[in-house]
Design a binder for these strands. Sequence first.
DNA 1: GTAATATAGTTAGCATGATAACTAAAGGAG
DNA 2: CTCCTTTAGTTATCATGCTAACTATATTAC
Lengths: 147, 147
Amino acid sequence: MFFLKVLPTTKMVEGYSDRYSGVDAEKVMEALGLMRRASLLIRELEAYFAGHDLSQLRFLVLVIIDREPERASLTAGEIADRLDVSKPVVTRTMRALEEAALIDVSSSSRDARSREVALTRAGQEKLEACLPGYFAILDRATSPEGA
Amino acid sequence: MFFLKVLPTTKMVEGYSDRYSGVDAEKVMEALGLMRRASLLIRELEAYFAGHDLSQLRFLVLVIIDREPERASLTAGEIADRLDVSKPVVTRTMRALEEAALIDVSSSSRDARSREVALTRAGQEKLEACLPGYFAILDRATSPEGA
DNA sequence: GTAATATAGTTAGCATGATAACTAAAGGAG
DNA sequence: CTCCTTTAGTTATCATGCTAACTATATTAC
């Protein structure tokens, strides 16, 4: 996360970057603004999901399973791949979702190491309940503060 | 952080968002892309700072103190304000920086509750050592993957 | 001057990200 | 078939974000 509240002015960045060759102060400012806006948005989304007894990550797991309708279930590893988070984080997240009865976890018949993860009815309902507010936040997010 | 590796296509978002009024799928996609790019950039920066025995937050504390040249020191609260992080995070970060001898912390003469924080010589040098690579990463960040 | 309130910072404890090291099962070489 | 390597997932531990509750000092009301 990146929570520097008052970004440096372009002038200040130029003051630093003049000393280093090949650095474009405009691009640096753009990257700082990118991180700042995304950090605020992520913070807002986490607060939103906390109100639904979820986190952004747990929500995304539900989305990922839901968006492969041709598959009844995904393995934990497939979920980790699609999320680009480490496996221990997936393990922990699965446990939380299972304890909340939002997913159903079972051993794979083909591979005893694998765990097959499917949405429960409650999981589908939780997902549906969160989607409108999620999209509303994302829709608003990029509008007010420009690029 | 937001690490969904393969973002939904605009079509998929439309599939969801058609069901909710007033949501612009393009804006939703833009917000998702914003979070994804920022998360990758933050991950890259944290890896960079880890190589300097720092974190992005600890680095930003050094920057914040350094960029107020008319002030010899800032209080912990002023740093928390500028960073927009919670006070306990500042407390912990200060302790780490002090243990690394990058800052000097002393009690305020005017207010016994306050702690005045100043860069040490080593702190200034650490900052200088990190700046070129930091700007190089930020400069690169917004170029390749477009908006 | 004393009591009530506000402010600066710390401590305790939780959530979510990470890596390293582990267990157990699968797959391949001979 | 047995050994070796790879793969799936877990456990243990750490880092960094948070809130709630605390201590100590400052400030304000009277």
